[in-house]
């Protein structure tokens, strides 16, 4: 097996084992209802994590995504409830604003040679502050379009429901995987994460690609904001605080190397599902504090970072290369 696939295989195996153990303990977890809710409840996190996967593969990080979700939620709620825009128009505006926001961050990162950590940290404060300036309170959204979307569900045998937003997340993952693994843009993203100097010597349009990566991340965060707004039917400036960290965790647990260059979009999907599983387990158990989620995520993250380290150090190329030239 390719060594880059090994962390992903480990994640998938851990997910299956953990799920099997959960089912043994709580047979109720093996139902279409639980599986359907998995998708719906984690839709906004999953969509954000797809963008984050691109950023991390390119060797960067985007701390602004949680704030962008919050800002988008508020912006949409205000546009719809206070200014009377149709939700679709509000969505388009929100996505456009996010695209500009991401482009600005990408430009700063590339042209000013500032680490993405700092730039997106500034972006996080900007977006979160911007949302709070618009309103301090939760703004409810009551629109026919919202109820129409919530009614768009596919009923599964066994009482499960596939919601629109759950399916949207799946679609985003599939498109993201195509983009990462089947297009030139995708190969440029990996190239940047592998070695930016080589990449530019090999003719990768570094500036354009960097800007596109952060645009993609912000636009997907805004899409996650839209999903979050559909999910909660409200906009709140302090929504989705810390989601950027959950997204980073999901990406790393899904087998993407934090230092860039290696990773899979569909691995992130498994990562998101694993995080969702931990949460569901704790809900089923009922006696555990929800903070246990954080502890388990912490342990998992640590495990995966160590695992990646071992895999990539053990199979480091060079001196011990077995092949004969």
């Amino acid at each position: 097996m390719k060594r880059s696939l090994r962390p992903l295989a480990a994640t998938a195996a851990i997910f299956l084992i953990a799920y099997a153990v959960s089912v043994l303990q709580f047979p109720g977890m093996l139902s279409t209802r639980v599986l359907g809710n998995f998708l719906t409840d984690n839709a906004f996190l999953g969509i954000t994590a797809v963008g984050m996967t691109f950023v991390i593969i390119s060797g960067g990080i985007d701390l602004s995504v949680g704030a962008v979700i919050g800002f988008t939620g508020v912006l949409i709620a205000v546009l719809i409830s206070w200014l009377g825009f149709h939700p679709l128009v509000a969505f388009a505006i929100a996505l456009g604003v996010a695209a500009l926001f991401g482009a600005a961050m990408g430009v700063t990162i590339h042209y000013l040679q500032v680490p993405s950590f700092i730039v997106t940290l500034a972006g996080m404060f900007l977006a979160r502050g911007g949302a709070s300036v618009i309103t301090q309170d939760s703004v409810p959204v009551n629109h026919d379009f919202y109820s129409a979307i919530s009614d768009l569900i596919i009923r599964l045998p066994g009482g499960g429901r596939l919601s629109f937003i759950g399916l949207l997340m799946v679609a985003v993952f599939l498109l993201g995987a195509l983009l990462a693994h089947r297009t030139r843009f995708g190969s440029y993203v990996y190239a940047l994460g592998g070695n930016p100097v080589s990449a530019s010597l090999m003719g990768v349009p570094v500036a354009r690609t960097t800007i596109q990566i952060y645009m993609l991340s912000s636009v997907l965060a805004a899409l996650a904001g839209i999903v979050f707004s559909l999910y909660t039917s409200a906009g709140y400036p302090l929504a989705a605080v810390g989601v950027e960290l959950d997204a980073i965790s999901a990406v790393v647990i899904g087998g993407t190397l934090l230092t860039g260059g290696y990773g899979f979009v569909l691995g992130t999907f498994v990562g998101v599902m694993l995080l969702g599983l931990v949460q569901t387990y704790i809900i089923f158990d009922g006696t555990l504090s929800s903070w246990w989620t954080k502890i388990v995520i912490g342990v998992l993250l640590f495990l995966f970072i160590v695992l990646q380290r071992i895999i990539f150090a053990a199979s480091a190329p060079g001196e011990e290369s077995p092949e004969k030239v």
């Binding site: 190969s187 990996y190 190239a191 592998g194 080589s198 990768v204 190329p317």
Partner: peptide
């Protein structure tokens, strides 16, 4: 070597000039 150790040999040979079919890289 100014190539990309994290990518396949083929991609290193053709990066930026990969053959495409319907907009997707024709592996």
């Amino acid at each position: 070597v100014n190539l990309l150790p994290n990518r396949s040999v083929a991609e290193n040979l053709f990066l930026g000039h990969q053959p495409r079919r319907f907009g997707f890289v024709d592996f």
